[in-house]
Amino acid sequence: MASIPLERYQNELIDLFRTNRNEWNREPMENYMRNHFSFLGIKSPERKEFLKRFFVEYGKPERDWIKPLVTFLYTQPEREFHYAALAMIDVHIMKLDAEWLPFLEELISTNSWWDTVDHIAPHHVGAILLREKASIEDFPDRWVESENFWLQRSAILFQLKYKSKTDAEKLFSYIEATKGSREFFIQKAIGWALREYSKTAPAKVRSFINSTEDLAPLSRREGLKHLARRGMEV
């Protein structure tokens, strides 16, 4: 783990990224994200390599640093720092418990867009809730009723990596609760979750889709993609 003070650790990371900014890439990256965020122009492979080298030189973050470090990185205007913040959580995710869920809820609701939310929901929230299922009632069950559609999306997607461990009844209940949404990111999340689960339980997903009224065409189309590729009658 890191052997330098947190403040220096933060500043060294800021300097590393800003020193390697790429103006050639910046505008296309900002346009791709519909100009919701500023970018340094550091693409994902380079950013991951910089972080790898950073961890070699300065060590991985102490567990006690995660909240202040992530909070600090989330205050930076450039999106690459938000990605780096999530990578800091990745380091310790297997040791984090349900006490971290309020912090993750705050992150989902801060600087919100699909690129960060779609990492936090399955990789962070999902990892914790797989170990601590009792907390589902206090978080995704509540999120699915939220007016914040990023929290709703997170509820739909937190089981995305569960495969055979998916609670199908829970997933389908969330979809029933949100299927009337006109929000693109909810309709897309429903389709994505169904498509991913169909790789594990194709008949169950096909039955759900065919018996669910008022499922948005986008959700239905996305949900059936894998089944169609397998040649299953839909």
Rank of each mutant, 00 (worst) to 15 (best):
I120A: 05
I108T: 07
H124K: 10
P122R: 07
S146A: 13
W150P: 10
W143V: 09
H124C: 10
W100D: 00
D141A: 13
D118E: 14
T166L: 01
P102M: 10
W143G: 05
H119S: 09
K165Y: 12
A155R: 02
N111I: 01
P140H: 06
L104V: 01
D115V: 05
P140L: 03
W100Q: 10
R142M: 06
I120T: 09
W113K: 03
K95A: 11
A121S: 14
N148K: 10
F149G: 01
R131A: 09
D97T: 12
I120G: 09
S146F: 07
V144R: 10
H119N: 12
S135W: 09
V125W: 08
F149I: 04
F103N: 08
V144D: 06
L160A: 08
F139Q: 02
L96M: 15
H123N: 15
W143A: 09
S164T: 13
A155N: 08
A155W: 02
E106D: 12
G126E: 07
P122V: 06
T110G: 08
R153W: 04
S135K: 13
E132K: 11
K161E: 11
I108P: 10
R131K: 15
E132P: 07
D141W: 02
Y162L: 02
A134V: 12
D141S: 15
F149V: 07
E99K: 13
D138V: 06
E145D: 12
L160W: 08
G126H: 07
L104Y: 11
A121P: 06
A127P: 09
P122G: 09
S109Q: 13
V125N: 07
I128K: 00
F149R: 02
S164K: 14
K95C: 01
K161I: 04
E106F: 03
T116D: 04
Y162F: 15
H119F: 04
K163S: 09
D138G: 13
S154R: 00
I156D: 06
W143N: 05
T116K: 01
I108V: 15
E137K: 15
A155T: 06
D97E: 12
R131F: 05
W143I: 03
W150G: 00
L157V: 01
T110F: 11
H123R: 13
A155S: 13
R131Y: 02
I156W: 08
S146Y: 04
L157H: 05
L96G: 11
S154V: 06
R142Q: 15
P140S: 09
N111Q: 14
T116Y: 03
K95F: 04
